[in-house]
Amino acid sequence: MNTVLELHELKKIYKGGNVALKGISLQIQQGDCFALLGPNGAGKSTTIGIICSLVNKTAGKVSILGYDLDSHSAKIKQHLGLVPQEFNANRFEQVEHILLTQAGYFGIPKRKAQANVDYYLEVLDLKDKRNVQAGALSGGMKRRLMIARAMIHDPDIIILDEPTAGVDVELRHSLWKLVKSINSNGKTIILTTHYLEEAERLCNKVAIIHNGKIAHQGSMRNLLESSANEKLLLTSINKIEQLPQANGYKIKKLNDHSLEVTIDANAGLNSLFKLLDQANIQITSISNASNKLEQLYMRITNQKQVQSS
């Protein structure tokens, strides 16, 4: 796998002394769907801003497809497509014009860009809106327009900065489908999100930024497998009288009909159900108490918080 993006000791200090990045380094391989996670103010958007030439870095090196950002900015930009967090297209321009204009900025003349524009209007279900002013679109349509705009010059790397923030469930699922299909076509995706379920579903690699530093970096599978325990919510049809006890399980009664069970990594579910059966607890439903990645994320960021304080 080729490295398509490499950050080395990237630092950013804003005017007024706010230190956003304290020297982050990471590598992204071709075809990765890379999740960049972190709490608000961690430095995710600053990192993306630097990669896309919207923020000036204070120190460090950004290399994309082997080109240094400082000396080959224009070449690099040809390979990047950005879907920003907030809508930033000209509200008074029509949808089709926005896409044709963006293609033009990348040096694609109108006659060549038209086919791409038609394709993305179709794929993103904006065909009927081609002559509508961008400002008149709904939130979901604006989001789709920004995705079409980022794809219009056929970039190798697509950066999505919280693409599903504030969108409804239906649109979120259709965007996930789209991101998966873009990724399966060999494009590299960099995704920042607050929805950890989204990162878990879509991404094969993950980096967690905390306080301007990389707190964790690696494959999503390894991260999820590193989880020491799993927390489940169980609902019983009958009233829970007494709690069973066993090694490997921490069982907590939430109310007369529900339990929270923390299962160690080496303990299985079969033994748990035997145990519950012996205690005459008839389980009718089972669910995760919280997303696994969310637990890991909280653990990593809390650890870093303690270390830094």
């Binding site: 896309c52 030439s53 919207l54 224009a74 070449k75 930009k77 040809q78 990047l80 950005l82 920003p84 907030e86 930033n88 297209a89 000209n90 509200r91 926005i98 204009t101 963006q102 900025y105 990348f106 040096g107 705009r149």
Partner: peptide
């Protein structure tokens, strides 16, 4: 106007010199 509504970013992220 473009700076205000941030549509200037369309140009800044593009390869236009």
């Amino acid at each position: 106007g473009n700076k205000f509504q941030r549509s200037i970013e369309e140009l800044l992220v593009s390869s236009a010199s």
